[in-house]
Design a protein around this nucleic acid. Structure first.
Lengths: 182, 182
DNA sequence: CGCAACATGTAAGCGGTTACATGATTAC
DNA sequence: GTAATCATGTAACCGCTTACATGTTGCG
């Protein structure tokens, strides 16, 4: 399951351009599947080449032609095959947690800053979830609703844990050497 | 913050070989920072070349020489610089959630299987957390304890959410086309 | 006047995954 | 016998990130 497959899935909701899909990746998919233009445009080109999507160009004044993609029947079949995976992965890559493992090598201010920034980012995601529910809750599939709910649940758990247990990071500092920001 | 840096951090706990570090990556770091031998051995070689670690070879009968690495003073400085980042990332890449977004294109059995497997994986992580606490809780830094606690908190949140709200994925199935497993 | 939004792409590079290669010892 | 544990590495590959390239419209 890569960016290509997710694009294909998004297109089951109706036609869209690469630009449109990017907005989708930012809003509803942002918390668990990031993708930039550098992945999306090549993905769409490749899908078109394989016959999984069809492209319709719409001329525009002063802007590049808008390229709108629509999923084909082969594309739908392909998507179903991908969705058949019984054990899709869920991977976390956290520099944040890696950093916190070594909190005893950091100053209290450094730790405080990192924690503060993490909570701020969590709040941003929470805002995204609120926006999503405010705007497109009615037209959304149960799957999307589930996804947003799960995002909210685990962001909430993280925030709660940090607020309740973050203090333990400040205990047992060993020789807080002066910062080597050089 | 890449595999190299995390290896460097692990070595602040004492000397270790690549093989040792791998076990570390699997147990305590497994839920937020995966790394295989293909990343670890080259990372150690590169760190040694840069003077951030020193290598001591221990001959062994019938096995390759055991290469034990120790962090140097430059290595410690380097690590402190890396830890100075005020906004370390926390990224999720979830084929699981991506799949669930398109649950309305799947059969009930498929969804059930995916959910079941995800919960099984969460239980595995929970077991790892228990093992960690049973074995090395006393000697561990506050940071490691925090990390494991946070992992447990969000695994728990995920599991709870799936159990309480998973049912919504089965509503509103649209034309559950027969599977295209080809 | 400058920035954000609209709109599409390419190319280099990087970091991590996977597969391959080797081989003894110990426990079931 | 066969699987797991110990133990280290290389090399190809793959997919994503980042930077670059271009240009208009409209708002404050």
């Amino acid at each position: 399951m890569d960016v290509k497959t997710v694009c294909l899935g998004m297109l089951t909701d109706g036609e869209a351009s690469g630009y449109d899909l990017k907005k989708n990746f930012e809003s509803s998919f942002g918390h668990f599947f990031a993708a930039g233009y550098g992945s999306i445009y090549p993905a769409l080109a490749s899908l078109a080449e394989q016959g999984f999507v069809q492209c319709r160009e719409i001329a525009q004044a002063g802007k590049p032609d808008r390229k709108v993609y629509r999923i084909t029947e082969q594309g739908r079949q392909r998507l179903l095959e991908e969705l058949d995976n019984p054990n899709p992965s869920h991977k976390v890559r956290s520099e944040f947690l890696a950093t916190m493992c070594f909190a005893h090598l950091m100053t209290a201010e450094q730790i405080q800053t990192v924690l503060h920034n993490r909570i701020a980012e969590i709040e941003r995601y929470m805002q995204l979830f609120d926006d999503f529910e405010a705007s497109c809750m009615n037209e959304s599939s149960g799957g999307m609703v589930f996804t947003v709910g799960l995002g909210r649940a685990y962001m909430n758990a993280m925030r709660g844990y940090i607020e309740e247990h973050g203090h333990m990071l400040f205990e047992a500092q060993e020789t807080p050497k002066q910062n080597a920001t050089a």
